[in-house]
């Protein structure tokens, strides 16, 4: 058990280091921080709201992550498949699950670093007013879970193909579906030809209502369960895809 965890850590460490040895990490971090700043203060109307909260900050995250997270996750497996290192990695004494978990945790840690670097927003709102820092903390927690869900999906699409662009586009499309399936225009459209039960089921996949709970300072076990099951399912699917790929 200890050695299994050590293997996961070794894989994760290598993966995380590989982000920082290429320009990918720095480009991503700069763009992420610029965009969060822009959306929060300009498009989100942080000052115009006149309230000491980070609603304008977190509200954009589902959309921001939609493009940025698949960009982080797209290389996870497709790159290994393209360069042949997948064969090297999986013939070392590791199980497929250890490899999947290690790589996923490394990218998630990278996203957590990016998210942590938005701390000046927290400082700003604390200097200007008297926000509820508990709500901000749950907001961050929810945002981390959201990025983890998108990442697990990108991980899955990355395992499907050796082409990173295809992996990226598939990832964006699936994440977009998770955002849109709860929106009224979409559910109305569905309701025209599907039964209400189907519409409700599809709408229940939506990420937004589950994400909103965290922005209100509530950690609901159902929301937690939703995000963890998305992550769990997507990583499980990654394992199945990799196994099928190897079985030929």
């Amino acid at each position: 058990m200890i050695s299994a965890w050590k293997t996961v850590r070794t894989i994760a460490r290598r993966e995380l280091a590989s982000y920082f040895t290429s320009p990918v990490a720095y480009v991503f971090l700069v763009i992420f921080l610029l965009l969060t700043g822009f959306f929060t203060f300009t498009a989100g109307g942080f000052f115009e709201r006149g309230e000491a909260s980070l609603a304008s900050f977190f509200g954009w995250h589902p959309w921001l992550y939609l493009v940025l997270v698949p960009a982080v996750g797209m290389r996870l497996w497709s790159e290994e498949r393209r360069s042949g290192t997948l064969e090297l990695l999986l013939t070392m004494p590791v199980t497929t699950w250890q490899a999947i978990l290690g790589k996923f945790l490394a990218s998630w840690a990278f996203l957590a670093i990016a998210l942590a670097l938005t701390f000046p927003v927290v400082l700003t709102v604390n200097v200007l007013g008297d926000p509820d820092n508990g709500v901000i903390a749950t907001g961050y927690f929810g945002s981390l879970l959201l990025s983890g869900s998108y990442l697990a999906i990108s991980c899955m699409t990355s395992a499907m193909t050796r082409n990173q662009v295809v992996a990226f586009i598939l990832g964006v499309v699936i994440c977009l579906f998770l955002i849109l399936c709860g929106f009224n225009p979409v559910t109305d459209l569905l309701a025209r030809w599907a039964s209400p039960a189907v519409v409700d089921t599809v709408a229940a996949f939506s990420v937004i209502p589950h994400f909103d709970g965290f922005q209100k300072g509530v950690i609901d076990s159902r929301d937690l369960f939703y995000f963890l099951s998305v992550i769990g399912f997507a990583l499980f699917a990654t394992g199945v895809i990799l196994r099928n790929h190897r079985a030929g």
């Binding site: 590989s18 040895t21 290192t85 070392m92």
Partner: peptide, 23 residues
Amino acid sequence: PEAAPAYPDMTVHGFLAFAADMR
């Protein structure tokens, strides 16, 4: 393996250290 794959973003030493850790 056939094409002698290795992680291109690592140094030779880093790669061998990774292999040693994995073993």
